[in-house]
Simulated scan of single mutants.
Amino acid sequence: MDKLPSTEHSSLYNDIENMSTQEILQSINQEDAKVALAVQQCLPQIAVLVDAVAERMKHGGRLFYIGSGTSGRLGVVDASECPPTFGVSDELVVGVIAGGDGAIRKAVEFAEDDTEKAWEDLEAYSIGSLDSIVGLAASGSTPYVLGGIQKAREEGLLTGAITCSPGSKIGQACEYAIEVAVGPEFITGSTRMKSGTAQKMVLNMLSTSVMIKLGRIRGNKMVDMQLSNQKLEFRGARMIMAELNISEEEARSLLKTHGSVRAVLAQAKK
């Protein structure tokens, strides 16, 4: 029998149903406090993955996340936030979830158990040698993700993994393993908790750092963000006001004319 993943180890707490509300919250918070420290231990591995992915993307590659359940949803969320934040195509970072887009809202039974389906799903995107595949699996053993990573590596793609189970099958199958040792969940096996938080933190680091490497940030500002609502239009105007020392009315007019903060600032330099 396979070794039990650390994410399935019994909770450090017992008789949870008899706890007061305050005790429940304090206990969850105590466990959550361990997550950032666990991620910190993985920074060297994350850095290597960032540089490897960014280098391929500079030459036309894309970044794909594959996962199921909570892990898959986190990948979809991170990918979907790249276009509005960094002004990139929605085809540059892609989240692929076992069971298809319907699984984002509702669980699809046994979708994660198919070892060949992930590669089939990736082939729908005309996957190529410059693309990078990062598998997301708290347990590090999800068949959908494991099969996809193994096939992607066979085909010469860059492969990475974000898991919360050190020594996992998926970590061993890929080139760049990030294994965040968060320990047992507050509720045994509920990996939407600490494991999900850890994966979200690593995904934030990965996509943000890659986009910085690709030149999508200036100073500390999202100069390429999509101006899709009033809040973002005002944020863009504030950036321009600060950079060019002009009024809000002038900044908004320039933003409307040129379409992005970066374009306005580039025009102002001419």
Rank of each mutant, 00 (worst) to 15 (best):
K3E: 15
L4R: 08
P5L: 03
T7G: 08
H9G: 01
H9D: 15
S11Q: 15
Y13R: 15
E17K: 14
N18K: 10
S27T: 15
S27Q: 12
I28K: 11
N29Y: 06
N29H: 07
Q30R: 09
D32G: 09
D32E: 13
D51H: 12
A52F: 02
A54W: 03
R56M: 01
L63T: 03
Y65V: 01
I66E: 09
G69D: 12
S71R: 06
S71Y: 05
S71E: 14
L74G: 08
D78C: 04
A79N: 09
A79L: 04
P84V: 02
P84D: 13
E91T: 15
L92T: 02
V96C: 10
I97T: 07
R105A: 12
R105S: 14
K106Y: 09
K106A: 13
F110M: 12
A111E: 06
D114G: 05
W119A: 04
D121R: 01
A124I: 07
D131P: 09
V134A: 10
A137F: 04
V145R: 06
L146V: 14
Q150G: 02
E154G: 11
G156T: 12
G160A: 04
A161W: 02
A161C: 13
T163Q: 08
S165V: 00
S165W: 03
P166D: 13
C174M: 04
E175A: 04
Y176H: 15
V182L: 01
F186C: 13
T188P: 15
T191W: 05
R192S: 08
M193T: 06
M193N: 11
K194W: 12
A198V: 10
Q199W: 03
M201K: 10
L206M: 12
T208R: 01
M211A: 08
N220C: 05
M222V: 00
M225Q: 14
K231Y: 12
L232D: 10
F234L: 15
R235L: 10
R238T: 14
I240A: 03
A242P: 11
N245C: 08
A251H: 12
L254M: 10
K256F: 10
T257M: 03
Q267N: 11
A268P: 15
